[in-house]
């Protein structure tokens, strides 16, 4: 179980306001509290509203890394914003870049950076034509990604395939396709290849958000998903994830297994 905490994101109003006011405490609290709640990584996203996203990214990265040693994920599809984060990032803490699409020319821009910083990198199974409705096309995109990773000599344990979760209210056939892609990843590319997704998007616009998130996460886990960007403050969600790990024999049962997993 590898939870990527989603909370340091300018789309949340408190974070948006903190960025605007340079209120470091709000960001530090989220860094520390998400770590305590089980985040293995902290996602950092300036949001779309930041006036100067590069400066905002630098400030967020510095602020988070003053507060804790938790690995961070620089979340932007804009390369200049990610590069701004890289300028100030601590080199003694694991790093993730989030995210790049499966277009070869994009991968050629992003992978050298991942290599240079020994960073994990989230790679979307979508390309410039969008998200294909065909599982084979998505797998083809994975092949493009893996081919480029080999070219740049990036270990597949650093490649986090993101099969792109869409709201269930928009596409009810999507989860099944995601499960199929996940099932094929280790068969095609070996067990070390990683995977992740932005979980909360599954319930965007829905009434039963926590329930949908929770069930989706356990189904993803059952299909081999290795990590997910989630609300780590959702205790029921994290409990469900720990339990999914237990049911997959990834940990040894004891009556207090929820506490033990959180140690």
């Amino acid at each position: 179980m590898e939870a990527i905490g989603e909370r340091i994101n300018g789309q949340f109003l408190d974070v948006k306001k903190a960025i605007k006011d340079c209120d470091a405490q709000v960001i530090k609290d989220h860094a520390i509290n998400q770590t305590k709640a089980g985040a293995a990584w902290l996602d950092i996203n300036t949001g779309t509203a930041a006036a100067e996203p590069e400066d905002a990214m630098k400030w967020l990265v510095t602020t988070v890394q003053e507060a804790c040693n938790t690995p961070i994920a620089l979340d932007s599809q804009k390369l200049p914003v990610v590069k701004a984060g890289l300028e100030v990032v601590r080199r003694d803490v694991p790093l993730m870049l989030n995210s790049v699409s499966a277009d070869p020319e994009k991968l050629d821009e992003w992978f050298p950076l991942a290599k240079e910083y020994d960073a994990a990198i989230v790679c979307l199974t979508m390309d410039k034509d969008g998200i294909s409705q065909d599982v084979n096309r998505r797998i083809e995109n994975c092949t493009t990604i893996v081919g480029k990773a080999l070219e740049y000599e990036i270990g597949l344990d650093k490649i986090y395939i993101d099969p792109v979760v869409l709201p269930i209210s928009v596409g009810q056939n999507q989860p099944q396709m995601i499960f199929e892609v996940l099932g094929q990843l280790p068969q095609l590319f070996g067990p070390e290849i990683a995977s992740t997704c932005g979980l909360s998007n599954i319930s965007n616009g829905c009434a039963e958000r926590p329930l949908i998130n929770r069930i989706m996460l356990t189904m993803l886990a059952a299909h081999g998903m290795k990590s997910a960007i989630v609300d780590v403050y959702d205790k029921d969600l994290m409990d469900a994830w720990i339990t999914a790990d237990l049911l997959q024999n990834k940990m040894i049962y004891n009556d207090s297994y929820l506490d033990s997993a959180r140690q």
């Binding site: 040894i252 049962y253 004891n254 009556d255 207090s256 297994y257 506490d259 033990s260 140690q263």
Partner: peptide, 13 residues
């Protein structure tokens, strides 16, 4: 092993 882990958890508590 489940009891062993539980005991370790309780001692750790």
């Amino acid at each position: 092993i489940a009891l062993g882990k539980q005991l370790a958890q309780e001692i750790s508590n």
